[in-house]
Design a protein around this nucleic acid. Structure first.
Lengths: 108, 108
DNA sequence: TCAATATGACAACAAAAGGTGTCTTATTAC
DNA sequence: GTAATAAGACACCTTTTGTTGTCATATTGA
């Protein structure tokens, strides 16, 4: 299994607010062990660990064992897929705003 | 309830491949009734209808009753939230590619 | 060596998601 | 008016999620 293979859909991994918060925390601090990440949530360690496992399956985090702790770091690369996908729809909402502006112009 | 209120998280609505395909179909054709959308899937009408209900809760589609059919159209606007979110991480994967290129350069 | 710490591996469970099928109602075509 | 069509409303079922709790294991500090 190479680095690019994803066991889990990126969209799915990112759908949960807890997991998005985890990515945010790792974006801020570069590398953090499980117990330090857990502090930022109300849920227990096991739950956070499972969320991290899902992020790992989607290749969004990289886990590295250091002594008795497992340190997690962000790997943002798979998010590019989401950006590419959402960019396709960019035209649609911009088009909508243009139409809205035209209506507002006519009201004057 | 105004147009901007979302009963459902956009990330969640978009996590399912069936729902992403629905958005794609509606991007192509502007307006489609349930039974025509159903044709493109293996699952039954009820299942597709449920997915559309979820998209509606996230404000990603607008439903409009015309005679005996309900026509759905795309509303891409809520996707902007995802684009804003993912753009924050753009720097991270680009940075990663720069590092990778440096390593490849050194190998020469 | 021994206690404290960090985590993995499970088992268990409630709630939500994804799907099916059936029945009913509204609309249209003939 | 009657048959066919489109869809909503439910009931029901299976699988996946999200969470907790417990037990076992590896690592570290004193």
């Amino acid at each position: 299994m190479n680095e690019n293979s994803q066991l889990r859909d990126v969209y799915d991994a990112v759908a949960d607010p807890t997991r998005r918060k985890l990515l945010q925390l790792l974006a801020d601090v570069e590398e953090l062990p499980l117990h330090e990440l857990t502090v930022h949530f109300q849920m227990g360690r096991t739950a956070v660990s499972k969320h991290l496992a899902i992020l790992k399956e989607a290749n969004l985090v990289i886990a590295r064992r250091v002594g008795r702790e497992t340190r997690y770091r962000l790997n943002a690369t798979p998010l590019k897929e989401i950006q590419d996908w959402v960019s396709y729809y960019e035209g649609f909402w911009k088009e909508r705003m243009v139409k809205l502006n035209l209506i507002l112009e006519e009201k004057k």
